[in-house]
Simulated scan of single mutants.
Amino acid sequence: MKNIIVVTITLLSLFACKSQVKQQQEIATANNILEISEKQKQAIRLSVDSISKQNIAGTIKATGKVDVPPQNQISISTAFGGYVKFTKLIPGMFFKKGEVIAILEDNQYIQLQQDYLVTKANLKAAEDEYLRQKDLNATKASSDKNMEQALAVYTSQKVNLKALEEKLKLININTAQLSDKNISRNINIYAPFDGVVSTVNVNIGKYVAPSDVLFELLNLGDLHLKVKVFEKDLPNLYTGQTLYTFANGNPSKKYKCEVILVGKHIDDDGTTEVHAHFTDSDKNLLPGMYMNVEIKDAEQKSWSVKNEAVLNFEGKNYVFVMLDDRKFELAEVTPGDSKNGYTEIKNSDVLIGKKLIVDGAYQLLMVLKNTEEEE
């Protein structure tokens, strides 16, 4: 009986001690407060730092699309109608400046060349007659009226010849090389620049009128990036700013761009357009491609802590604030951008002037987590 009483008292003492330890643990971890023993402190080897101002460059992330300015989107038509005799263009095809992209034929091309050569011959005769009448008039061998009529014919022929010359230039016929031996029913249409075909509206044998657009051509020498940026980010954007863009299919290949225009109008969705010029590009970039965009803010000093001090736990971010040698508080923080080993803290006001754990912060988190699990 006496032994039973002793065992009972011993068990009650053990339960009482365990209950007391549990109460101490609850007190130690209440409100994210952790208190460790001197032995644990020596084992963890903590280092302390404080929040400070560091140069941190923020990053604005956006989406954009490769675009071509209006002056580099060319609609090709012909000044005079004709039948398409030849073209090899298909959408997406690259071409070189000066390359023949189409050949048209029509009777009116022959007529224009004929009119030009006849007028050129008539002009020579009219000029000779005018000079003859001028000489005769000087000696009064011819009347003023005859000289004036000769001058009128000469001037008229000169005007007609110039007008026909300009018309022939419109269809790429060089009048300096035109003679009765090389009159042609065909005209060539040449590529005005290096570029890529966007649209083809013709086929062999089709008749095209002067108002018809044969091809849409794009000059890729001046590609730019059209970016949609939210209103809140506009204060951090400026002309001349550098940004980098990349396609989803090749994120490792980043293209450098320079901001050339920041929009002044906010759309209904709260965004505005920012235009940037590619400083380096290649043929893999085509108009209409969707791109990911990263824009670096101007560097500015922000309240920051060392990267090791910031802990991510269950989807939130924390730092340990040192209350005394063995007592610490787990404080939630909102991190920003990181650079040079430091992370910006957006809610920095709660940490200014306090000591923060850097080395050993993760070990403290494990102790706190294990303690809570035991409870």
Rank of each mutant, 00 (worst) to 15 (best):
K346I: 13
E231R: 10
V100W: 07
N317I: 03
G270W: 00
Q177E: 09
E99I: 08
A16P: 00
S304L: 05
Y190P: 06
Q113S: 04
D233M: 04
L237T: 05
T119H: 03
G81W: 05
N317Y: 13
L89Y: 02
P251T: 09
A247G: 15
C17R: 12
K65Q: 11
Q23S: 14
Q25Y: 14
K181N: 15
E35F: 03
T63I: 07
K140V: 06
L368P: 05
K346R: 12
A43W: 00
K283H: 13
E165Q: 15
A138M: 10
I5W: 02
L323D: 03
L151N: 07
S198M: 07
I33Q: 09
G82S: 01
S77P: 06
T343H: 01
V196K: 11
K355W: 00
V66L: 03
E273Q: 13
V6F: 09
E105H: 11
N203W: 05
A141V: 11
A121Y: 10
G221H: 07
S304D: 07
E216N: 15
S281A: 11
K2W: 05
K65I: 08
A30Y: 11
E314H: 08
V68H: 02
D282S: 03
L364E: 10
D324N: 11
E329N: 15
S142M: 01
L11G: 13
L170P: 01
Y318D: 02
I76T: 08
L214P: 01
G221F: 01
E314Y: 09
D349K: 10
V6M: 01
Q71E: 15
V358Q: 08
I76H: 01
I352S: 06
V208G: 02
N188V: 00
K61D: 09
A16N: 07
I74F: 08
S156E: 12
S19R: 13
L34I: 06
F230L: 09
E148H: 11
V367F: 09
V159Q: 13
Y290A: 15
Q241K: 05
V208K: 01
T242R: 14
I352E: 11
T8L: 14
N236A: 10
L217Y: 00
T78C: 04
A125E: 07
A16T: 14
F246K: 04
D282N: 05
T119A: 10
G341S: 04
E329Y: 12
M147H: 00
T199D: 12
Y255K: 07
Y207V: 12
A361K: 02
P192W: 02
T59H: 05
L12A: 15
A30Q: 14
K306S: 09
D180H: 14
K145W: 04
F193Y: 06
K339T: 04
N248K: 12
L356E: 01
Q24R: 12
W303F: 12
K355Q: 08
K120H: 08
D128S: 15
S184T: 10
I60H: 02
I204Y: 10
A126F: 00
E35D: 04
Q23I: 05
E216D: 15
L286Y: 10
M366F: 05
S338L: 03
D280V: 08
T343Q: 06
R45E: 12
K232M: 03
L261A: 09
T78D: 06
T175S: 03
K140Y: 05
V100P: 03
I266Q: 01
I183K: 05
V262M: 02
G315C: 11
Q300F: 02
A30H: 13
L217R: 12
E344I: 00
E294N: 11
